[in-house]
């Protein structure tokens, strides 16, 4: 039984204050039909040159290292993760003995958990598809990092006063100038294709159809957690390249359904307020009737009632 069914069940058994039907027919109110830009990564073409890492550092003013230092293949001995100083990393996997390289960065989800989680809307899924971060709003609670299903956002833990959440920016400034992201521009083997997400998905499926031996029949990111702007083609399941195995439901679904049910037009909170006020009024004259032990059962029942009506 998946979570959505369970939520439905809760509604059906009367535990949810708002009728469960309304919640279940509206699977994720937050989801927007964003058809923006994306990047298709064809892992079968990647040669592991790590030039994208270098270009990313350049474009985003991250600590610079000479291009030659990226030719060091010892980086592949361990599985690296993006961090506050590296928005993208290339990892090597050998599921069948032969090396396969896969670039890792923010996936720019269609329905991003970070944006749903953020307490001050510091994360925004823009209409062009970019998940952008605004440090001036951020209060540094790091709930975005907790919520990310890809474990991408990183934090500047050693910055005492103005730490930021760091992750792939999709090279926003370059996009505004009409240029492709730095990693895409530098890729020498055209492993990265930048374009409209819907066109990239069509392209990916054409590639699979043309070369069914070269690719598995799955575009990673087409449906995962409701879809992502970054899409992957590969010869083996992406989970073998150490990508997470994820379902199709957007991660914020359940919380937002709960949240929007509890606060549906503020009716449930106001109803609870009125209900408590009612009890206060009705019991006002019995205050001296508090028999020694007998009153406990009533109090218990009443406290439990509160619990039962608030989900």
């Amino acid at each position: 039984m998946d979570r959505r069914e369970f939520t439905k069940l809760l509604g059906a058994t009367g535990l949810a204050l708002v009728p469960g039907k309304a919640a279940a027919s509206d699977p994720h109110p937050h989801a927007r039909k964003v058809d923006g830009i994306g990047v298709l990564v064809d892992t079968t073409l990647c040669i592991g040159c790590r030039k994208c890492e270098w270009a990313c550092n350049q474009s985003n003013n991250l600590p610079e290292q000479p291009l030659s230092s990226f030719e060091n293949k010892s980086a592949f001995t361990s599985n690296r993760r993006p961090d506050a100083a590296h928005y993208t990393v290339v990892n090597e996997s050998r599921p069948d003995g032969e090396p396969i390289w896969a670039k890792v960065q923010c996936m720019h989800c269609q329905d991003p958990a970070c944006a749903s989680a953020c307490i001050v809307t510091a994360f925004d899924k823009r209409d062009d598809g970019v998940v952008a971060y605004d440090a001036s709003r951020c209060m540094g609670c790091r709930y975005c990092i907790v919520s990310c299903p890809f474990q991408i956002p990183a934090y500047e833990y050693d910055n005492a006063l103005t730490p930021q959440v760091r992750k792939c920016t999709f090279c926003l400034e370059r996009l505004d100038e009409g240029r492709a992201p730095a990693c895409v521009s530098i890729c020498p083997v055209e492993c990265l294709t930048y374009g409209r997400r819907d066109e990239l998905i069509a392209l990916a499926h054409r590639k699979i159809a043309r070369n069914p031996d070269r690719y598995i029949d799955h575009v990673y990111g087409e449906h995962e957690v409701g879809g992502t702007s970054w899409l992957y083609l590969s010869s083996v399941p992406m989970t073998e390249l150490d990508f997470p195995e994820l379902g199709d439901a957007p991660v914020p679904c359940v919380t937002e359904t709960i949240q929007h049910s509890i606060f549906k037009n503020f009716v449930p909170p106001l109803a609870l307020y009125a209900f408590l006020g009612q009890i206060m009024w009705l019991t006002r004259d019995r205050e001296q009737d508090a028999e020694a032990e007998g009153s406990d059962a009533v109090a218990t029942q009443a406290v439990r009632d509160q619990g039962g009506t608030t989900l």
Binding site: H30, A115, S116, A117, C118, I119, V120, T121, R137, C141, Y143, P252, T255, E256, Q259, F263
Partner: peptide, 11 residues
């Protein structure tokens, strides 16, 4: 301007 109705943490 920063209210975030979707966020549980906001609530």
């Amino acid at each position: 301007s920063m209210w975030s109705g979707h966020s549980v943490l906001f609530e």
